[in-house]
């Protein structure tokens, strides 16, 4: 048995998304079984199967070191906070001017 990773998408919409994985003896049966396992309710109309043996995997030690550098994060929280504050400051003025 081989293990395959299953990706689905709807035609013209979204990107391929990982739906799960699948065991099958070969590529042909993997397609057949993927249809019954992941597509019985028309969850997508495009299908990719990737044999897990063909995945290029970065191991944790290689990937993790950047996790402790918060100064590189750009999650927009500080800007969002500032804009929220400005909005709140403006709100009473706007109400006052419209009445």
């Amino acid at each position: 048995m081989k293990r395959y990773e299953v990706f689905l998408k709807k035609d013209g919409r979204d990107e391929y998304r990982h739906a799960g994985s699948l065991d099958a003896p070969d590529d042909g049966l993997a397609l057949v079984l993927a249809r019954e396992t992941y597509l019985r309710r028309a969850e997508g109309d495009r299908l990719w199967l990737v044999d897990r043996a063909n995945l290029v995997v970065g191991d944790t030690e290689f990937v993790a070191p950047n996790a402790d550098k918060p100064h590189r994060h750009n999650d927009g929280e500080r800007i969002a906070e500032r804009r929220r504050r400005l909005r709140e400051e403006q709100a009473p003025r706007e109400e006052g001017s419209s009445s």
Binding site: M1, L22, D23, A24, V32, L33, E36, T37, R40
Partner: peptide, 10 residues
């Protein structure tokens, strides 16, 4: 196996 279980009953 699980996948066959689903396929056959479907």
């Amino acid at each position: 196996f699980l996948e066959e279980d689903l396929a056959f009953s479907s």
